[in-house]
Write a protein that binds this DNA or RNA. Structure first.
Lengths: 141, 141
DNA sequence: TTGTCATTGTAGCCATTGCTACAAATCAAC
DNA sequence: GTTGATTTGTAGCAATGGCTACAATGACAA
C-alpha cells in the first residue's frame, strides 16, 4: 500500500469544506424541489434532511444573509442568481461522482449514499480524472 | 449523466459520519505520531490539525470519556486497545482511498488532500470496489 | 535551587447544528 | 367568515468545535 505524503493542509481544507457543505446541500435540495414540485417549502427540506423545521429555518436565514436564497416570511423558498449557480455546479458534481461510483461497479443505492458524503471533498482535479474515466469506459464498449 | 435515486437516508448517514470523523482523525494522527516520534503530545496534534491546543485538549478529553485514548494530565497521549483498533482500521481505509486516487491518475498532493476528506464517507462496499480496481490495474501491467 | 520555557489546563466567549415547546400566520373547506 | 390544519417563527436549551487570555505544571540549565 502506498505511503501517505505528509500534508499539513489536508485537515484545514476538510474543515473549510464543512463550512460550505451545508450551504451546498441546501441550495441543491431547494433547486431539485422547485424543479420537482414547482416550489420549495421549509417543511420539504426538513423531510429530506430528516431534521426539524426549526433547524431548517435557522439555516435558511443564514443562507438568506449570505445572499444564496430568498426567504420571505411564511412563503416558499427561492434561490438568488448566485444560489442557482451554486446549485447547478453542485448538482453537476454530485451526478458526476455518482456516475463514477456506478462506473467502478458500486450498486445504485450505495452510490447514492456515498456520493452525497464524498462530493463535497472532491477537488476539480480529481473530478476531471473521474470524468475521464467514465468517458474512457463508455468509449471502450 | 445518470439520474440520482432519491435517498432519504443519505443525509442522515452523512451527518452520522461527521460525529465520528473527528474521533477517527485524532486516533489516526495519534497512532502515526507515536509511530514517528515515540510519543504524542497535544501540541503535536494542534500543529498537525492547525488548531489551538485548547481545541485539542477538549477533543482529547471527550475521546478519553469515550474510551479511545488515555490522557493523564500533563503527560503524553496514548491509545486504548479500542483506539488502536480504530486507528489501524482508519489508516488502512485512508491508504486505500489514497492509492485508488493515484490509480485513476490523480497527482500525489491532490490525492493526499482529497483522500483525507473522502475517506470518512466511503462505505465498505465502495472500498471493496476500489480495492478490486487497484488489483485489476496492477495485474494488467 | 531557582528560574525559565515549553506544555497543558481552565475560564469564558462565539458560531453552527441539533432539539422541544409554544406562538403566530396562512390556506382550504365549510 | 370562521374554523382547523398545516406551515413558520421564536424562545430557550445542549453538544461540538473554534478562539484568546491567563494559570498551573514539568523539565532542564544555570
Amino acid at each position: 500500500m502506498s505511503k501517505l505524503p505528509s500534508t499539513k493542509d489536508s485537515y484545514s481544507r476538510t474543515r473549510q469544506d464543512h463550512s460550505t457543505e451545508t450551504a451546498e446541500d441546501y441550495v441543491e435540495a431547494i433547486f431539485d424541489t422547485i424543479e420537482a414540485k414547482g416550489a420549495c417549502r421549509a417543511v420539504d427540506l426538513a423531510e429530506q434532511f430528516g431534521v426539524s423545521h426549526v433547524t431548517v429555518s435557522k439555516i435558511i436565514s443564514r443562507l438568506d444573509t449570505d445572499g444564496l436564497v430568498e426567504a420571505p416570511a411564511y412563503k416558499p423558498i427561492g434561490l438568488t442568481p448566485e444560489g442557482k449557480l451554486m446549485a447547478a455546479r453542485v448538482r453537476k458534481r454530485h451526478e458526476l461522482v455518482y456516475s463514477f461510483l456506478i462506473a467502478i461497479g458500486v450498486d445504485a443505492k450505495t452510490a447514492a449514499i456515498d456520493s452525497e458524503g464524498i462530493e463535497h471533498h472532491v477537488s476539480t482535479k480529481t473530478l476531471a480524472r473521474m470524468r475521464a474515466f467514465i468517458e474512457e469506459r463508455s468509449a471502450d464498449r
